[in-house]
């Protein structure tokens, strides 16, 4: 697989604070790479360093095989960025905003016209072409922000938390659009602190905390890092202590918690744990109102590796 980005030993300090600490990773052609980390973990800083917007203290950055510098116009030509902050002109309507930014890359007017319409369709703003930013809702504005960053059909796209504060429907729209870009051949770096998003769209994920990589790989690979395999939740009223002890000794059970009439059981390994549990409850005539099983999430991985929740 070809490397589109190669980062080696990247270190960035803001005065005393080490925002990025010896970061090394690659991004492969045609993939969606998720950069997952809590607030302040260094995601945006990493992207800004990659783009030469920020100077850094140590390390090398290569994009498309060449060292990235502020004057690397040939590299910049092939990059599209959707920043975390909305970056559009209040004074221009939807179509003008996209056309303006696209025009910084695409000279030919006819090509540009087509590209602008493609971008509008991709993010689903067909009915808002003449709207000004302040007439758009938060979610629609995010979509415009994305369209402005990707209209020139870049080979490499950075998306920095493009779905913050977006309603679920808009979010699905945006995620679908991003997948489409990948399918059309772009390579995508996607930062977020929503692990569900990573699970939905990312081919690979890098989890960072305090500027260092704590895990990386495909989502399944990363999930295996968690020592648990399954989580079962049961709603059951006034469970007696002797049953709790017995459940603890069932096969594969790692931990049992009973709180507020809710029973949490985590399993280290194995399939069919849920069926075994239901059998046990039936035999002992324990009545429950609800029961469900979950696979571990990236949050569990994060929790296990750092001892804290991914989301505050």
């Amino acid at each position: 697989m070809k490397n589109v980005i190669e980062v080696k030993n990247l270190t960035k300090k803001y005065k005393e604070l080490k925002a990025i600490d010896d970061l090394s990773f690659e991004v492969y052609e045609g993939e969606i790479l998720g950069l997952l980390g809590p607030n302040g973990s260094g995601k945006s800083t990493t992207i800004n360093c990659l783009l030469s917007l920020l100077n850094f203290n140590k390390g090398t950055i290569k994009i498309f095989g060449k060292t990235m510098k502020p004057s690397s116009y040939d590299i910049k030509e092939k990059i599209g960025v959707v920043f975390q902050d909305i970056a559009v002109f209040e004074e221009l309507n939807v179509i003008d905003n996209i056309n303006y930014f696209c025009g910084l890359y695409i000279k030919d007017k006819d090509t540009r016209k087509k590209y602008v319409l493609d971008a509008i369709n991709l993010v689903g703003l067909e009915n808002y072409k003449k709207f000004y930013p302040k007439q758009l809702s938060g979610g629609l504005l995010r979509r415009l922000n994305i369209a402005c960053g990707i209209a020139h059909k870049p080979k490499l796209i950075f998306l920095d938390e493009p779905t913050v504060a977006v309603d679920p429907q808009s979010r699905n729209n945006i995620l679908e659009g991003i997948k489409k870009l990948r399918d059309e051949g772009s390579t995508i770096v996607y930062t977020t602190h929503y692990m569900e998003e990573v699970e939905i769209i990312c081919d690979r994920v890098i989890i960072i905390d305090k500027g260092s990589i704590i895990a990386s790989g495909t989502t399944d690979e990363v999930k295996h890092l968690a020592s648990i395999e399954e989580k079962v939740t049961v709603e059951v009223v006034d469970l007696e202590n002797k049953y709790l002890e017995e459940i603890k000794n069932l096969k594969h059970v790692d931990e049992v918690k009973y709180d507020n009439n809710i029973l949490f059981i985590t399993y280290k390994k194995g399939k069919n744990n849920l069926i075994d549990l239901i059998d046990y409850l039936k035999i002992n005539k324990i009545n429950y109102t609800k029961i469900f099983s979950e696979r571990p999430t990236l949050n569990d991985v994060f929790l296990e590796l750092t001892g804290k929740e991914l989301r505050d």
């Binding site: 783009l51 917007l53 890359y105």
Partner: peptide
């Protein structure tokens, strides 16, 4: 780029 988010967009474009 240090004054506005729009400036960042323009900075990362290939326009001098």
């Amino acid at each position: 780029a240090n004054m506005s988010s729009k400036g960042k967009r323009i900075f990362i474009s290939p326009t001098k």
